[in-house]
């Protein structure tokens, strides 16, 4: 249903018969474990522990049987956003100098800080993509509901997920019709105005669509409550996975506590 959000690999997860298939675990558990992992990893500062955290994410990615290249590509895309900030750090943080470039000193402290941020960001985002991002978007909404997220927020999430694809198709149609009329984007006033009109038109149509949706919902007896039917159950494989995962997190914390004083 939602092609924009759903990576191709969600539907064909028969690739690996080995290892725990991440996609068959309880979605609630996947969300909770992802959040725990993120919190623990952000709290770590020892580089060894952070490297292990990244390795843990990578291991999970490998045994989950997901196409690793695609996921790593997404991770690399995030890196391209932050690389600039990381490169600056050695030069802006005072400390023991490594070398001087055009009269500016690079410090070891800054370099390690940059490595620390890079490792943390990659470990967390890889875990998010592997453990939570492989869910059907609709399942994410249901699982969040089961985890006691406020009902209205869940409904907002469900509506957004439901209509992202519809609106993207509308956007594509509008772009096609612009193209047919000879529109070619460039750096000029005409382009920006046309894109502005495009966005404005999308909003107008979205608003009118939502009026039709509400009318249709009322016709079907909408009383202000949306009932989510999906039910989740923890199985033995979920519990053993959770225990293993928790042990790995405890190990990370132990490394941090015993070695991370520096």
């Amino acid at each position: 249903m939602t092609h924009v959000l759903t990576p191709d690999h969600v539907t064909n997860h028969g690739l690996s018969a080995l290892g725990p298939k991440v996609t068959s675990l309880d979605p609630r558990l996947r969300i909770v474990l992802t959040a725990l992992f993120a919190i623990v990893t952000v709290a770590l500062s020892h580089l060894g522990a952070l490297t292990l955290a990244l390795l843990l994410s990578m291991t999970l990615l490998t045994v989950s049987g997901l196409p690793a290249r695609k996921t790593l590509k997404r991770m690399a895309m995030m890196d391209s956003f932050i690389i600039f900030m990381l490169v600056l750090l050695p030069f802006t943080m005072p400390g023991t100098p490594i070398f001087t470039l055009w009269g500016v000193e690079a410090s070891w402290e800054g370099l390690w800080r940059a490595v620390e941020i890079g490792l943390t960001a990659n470990a967390v985002i890889l875990m998010v993509l592997t453990l939570t991002g492989t869910m059907e978007p609709v399942t994410l909404g249901h699982a969040l509901h089961a985890l006691k997220t406020p009902e209205r927020l869940v409904h907002l999430i469900m509506f957004t997920i439901r209509y992202i694809d519809v609106l993207r198709e509308e956007y594509m149609r509008l772009r096609t019709s612009m193209k047919l009329r000879g529109f070619r984007p460039g750096t000029n006033w005409h382009t920006y105005r046309s894109f502005g009109y495009l966005v404005g038109m999308m909003l107008v149509r979205a608003m009118e669509r939502s009026e039709r949706i509400l009318a249709a919902m009322k016709c079907r007896g909408f009383s202000g409550r949306i009932i989510l039917l999906e039910e989740f159950r923890l199985r033995r494989s979920d519990i053993s996975f959770a225990v293993l995962f928790a042990l790995a997190l405890v190990a990370l914390v132990l490394i941090e506590v015993t070695h991370g004083a520096a």
């Binding site: 209205r152 409904h155 509506f159 957004t160 609106l167 956007y171 984007p185 939502s210 509400l214 202000g224």
Partner: peptide, 25 residues
């Protein structure tokens, strides 16, 4: 955001999500 307005908010939220995928030269 009363429940009656959730469809409108959801559709608009989706519109802004799609708009964030638009790249302008």
């Amino acid at each position: 955001l009363p429940l009656e307005r959730i469809p409108a908010a959801g559709v608009l939220s989706a519109s802004f999500f799609v708009a964030s995928l638009i790249h302008v030269p």
